[in-house]
Amino acid sequence: MNSFFKYFSDIFHGVKSLLIGMSVTGRYFFSPGQIVTQQYPENRKNLQMFERFKGEVIMLHDGNNQHRCNGCGICENNCPNGSIEVIPAKITGEDGKSKRVIDKHIYHLGMCTFCGLCVKNCPSNALGFGQEFEHAVFDRSKLTKVLNQPGSSIIKGVE
């Protein structure tokens, strides 16, 4: 007899639980509330990334096309993947002493894992993270970038 009642209570509880489940999906069907789906290519214009977003490593340049990198190579040493190559150059300053400056700061985006060690360890805060995230290119070699802009020079007094 007990199993007889259990049979019916099982049916009752089963149907009840199914109805509760259906009420959730049914509720969302009629009132979806806020939809978090991003309409990506359409919302490109007003797409705002977070300010700390690690899109790519960039060298910070000011309005006069000047940066703070002196080519010390600490970022290169800190990079776990070898995605940074610093090619220094020697120039002769106004005082006649030759000093070390950056010739090319080469950055292999394809190898970068965005760990942030280069930015964190840069003694002169020359590096930063850019907001660009659309990195897809057809040729892998295009992922290798030179971070110091052509014609840029070091800000005085940073060395």
């Binding site: 977070f50 700390r52 942030g116 993270f129």
Partner: peptide, 24 residues
């Protein structure tokens, strides 16, 4: 996470001795 660490998934936020940057 993205706001604080800059990444959504693989943050590398901790570093020996602390965290990479302060919370947002």
């Amino acid at each position: 996470w993205e706001e604080t660490t800059g990444s959504r998934f693989l943050q590398s936020y901790n570093c020996p001795g602390g965290v990479m940057q302060d919370i947002h």
